[in-house]
């Protein structure tokens, strides 16, 4: 199974990808919104928070997949030896 397929099998990667798309849309909307004094820029704040959340999900998913890949390579080498 290739690495991409493994990522797609990991729910954290799927959740991270979806919320990263949402976060980017909200941040772009938030940045381009005119500033209104006393009013919260909800798109920007929510986008930033979602960005952090999705970044965390993607980070842990990618880290674990790379670890698993490395350990399976080590196994292959030891079997070959």
């Amino acid at each position: 199974m290739n690495l991409m397929q493994k990522y797609l099998d990991d729910l954290r990667f799927i959740i991270g990808a979806l919320f990263m798309i949402f976060a980017l849309i909200l941040m772009v909307l938030g940045i381009t919104e005119p500033v209104v004094p006393g009013k919260l820029n909800l798109n920007l704040y929510t986008g930033l928070f979602m960005g952090l959340f999705s970044g965390g999900m993607l980070f842990f998913s990618i880290r674990d997949q790379l670890k698993a890949e490395e350990s399976s390579k080590k196994k292959d080498v030891s079997v070959a030896l």
């Binding site: 729910l11 919260l40 909800l42 704040y45």
Partner: peptide
């Protein structure tokens, strides 16, 4: 699970505001 995060992250800003 996806829907859980969507519900929480989609409605929490409302409470915050």
């Amino acid at each position: 699970v996806l829907q859980f995060f969507l519900i929480v992250l989609g409605i929490a800003p409302l409470v915050f505001a």
